[in-house]
């Protein structure tokens, strides 16, 4: 089953770095799997844990939050808050028994199209053996 399984990923990208970085991947015509749907937010610091859980509840197999490199946040310190929150989310996922590998945080600058591409490729690869996420999924 896992062989044909294509995970669905929701990616919260901050507008200033990661979304711009993913734009650069496009401009450079890099290729990565289409499993990821980007949602551009103002800053990684605006990603509430509720967004992450909501995505899992709606049936996402993986969630990515990507922001500017620590210290480079367009809003000075949003990504520091994100980083702290994300550590808690990971623990909480472990606690409730959902593989915490399903959730990822990355730092991608506006110049790092290649890095974004690699992150998506790797994430898809890591999610495949885990199979569909059912634990938090609300039956629709």
């Amino acid at each position: 089953m896992t062989k044909d399984f294509e995970p669905t990923i929701v990616a919260f990208l901050c507008k200033w770095c990661s979304s711009a970085g993913s734009d650069l991947a496009g401009v450079s015509r890099m290729k990565y799997p289409p499993n990821v749907i980007p949602i551009t937010v103002m800053c990684s610091g605006s990603v509430s844990p509720l967004y992450i859980f909501n995505a899992f509840q709606k049936g996402a197999d993986g969630v990515l939050v990507s922001g500017c490199h620590p210290g480079d946040c367009h809003y000075i310190k949003g990504n520091f808050y994100a980083r702290r929150r994300i550590a808690l989310v990971k623990e909480l996922l472990d606690f409730i028994g959902l593989e915490s590998e399903r959730f990822k945080m990355s730092w991608v600058s506006a110049a790092e199209g290649t890095k974004y591409t690699e992150i998506i490729k790797d994430f898809v690869k890591e999610l495949k053996p885990l199979g569909p996420q059912k634990k938090l999924r609300r039956d629709q």
Partner: peptide, 29 residues
Amino acid sequence: EGCGTCSATCLRAAVKVKNITPGQIFEMI
């Protein structure tokens, strides 16, 4: 500046950034 850090922090969802509110994000998800 509309970064939204406040809205991710508020426990009661009492503060949100206009036109990119949690309600909108949930629909987008």
